[in-house]
Simulated scan of single mutants.
Amino acid sequence: MTRLTRRRFLIGSGLGAGAVALGGCDLLEPNEQTQAVLRSAETLTMKLQRLLQGRGALAREYLEADISPTFRVNGTSAPDSDEYARLLEGKFADWRLRIDGLVERPQAFSLAELKALPARTQITRHDCVEGWSAIGKWTGVPLGALFTAVGIKPSARYVVFHCADELEKTLDGSGRYYESVDLIDAFHPQTILAYAMNGQDLSVGHGAPLRLRVERQLGYKQAKYLMRIEVVDSFASFWGGGGGYWEDRGYEWYAGI
């Protein structure tokens, strides 16, 4: 992350005050001590937000008239893989969302099965770390309902979303996009696995066939092209250990807004 990007990120993600307290942390080198300070500020931000707003506080929802005429594609515009191309050609008939890890009953859901479950529709604002926002209408299945179906083990702490898009070609898989939330956000009523946007099936650019919507966080948390959901007790075994593709590269994990 460049110094300018880091500064914009800290301000846009609610860590602006921490940046001022650090005397302009965009000028600090990304050493271990600096990263520890940033992680501490991030934890404080998360605790304060949840304390002041409440764990179940809802992000603002809008009216149909507020939907943006243009909604930019964030991140990857299309996964570059033979597997995804095959699934897309078959209109995702063979696609399955696997849920495993620290669950009692691992399952794999087809897109048709997800669409048959009780759905939630919400019109919310997407805030990108790059500085743009757009309002869209999302329809999908609440993530908490799926976890109720599969059962969460007592040792579970986090939910990791594995995606089809690969931002960097690496031998160890660290270039593949992934994201994560804790169980509080996983069971939040506005956290859904969306299969429709503005009344239509998701386009490829917006994450077909399924994407995460966790509405109280910044855009890079809204993982697209979901393939697998893994429930874990830590991020220690995941590449950089940050809990996400961008987090492994210096972004904050709790990107609350």
Rank of each mutant, 00 (worst) to 15 (best):
K224D: 04
F235A: 01
A208Q: 09
M1Y: 06
I229M: 08
R96D: 01
V129E: 15
R39V: 02
M227G: 10
P106Y: 11
R3S: 15
V214K: 04
G205W: 10
V231I: 13
S203P: 05
G24H: 13
L183Y: 06
A21L: 15
P79E: 08
V232I: 09
Q217T: 10
I11R: 11
G24P: 14
P209F: 15
T70E: 14
Q35R: 15
R3W: 02
S81N: 10
A255M: 07
W246K: 04
E166R: 15
E61N: 03
L212Q: 04
P189V: 02
S110R: 10
Q49A: 07
G244P: 08
T191V: 03
A149K: 14
G23Y: 06
G23V: 07
L51C: 05
E166W: 02
L210N: 08
M227V: 08
G16Q: 09
L171I: 05
D94C: 04
M197D: 00
Q222D: 12
D80F: 04
W138V: 00
S234H: 12
R60E: 13
P118N: 08
W239Q: 10
N31P: 01
P142G: 06
Q35V: 07
W246M: 07
D100A: 10
G207L: 10
T76Y: 11
E32R: 13
S81K: 12
R125F: 01
L114P: 02
V141Q: 10
D165G: 03
L4Q: 14
S81C: 09
G244I: 01
T121Y: 04
L52R: 13
T148W: 00
Y84M: 07
V232K: 12
R125W: 01
V214H: 08
E61C: 07
A194T: 05
V159N: 05
T70D: 10
W239K: 12
L44G: 01
L4D: 14
A41Y: 12
R216A: 04
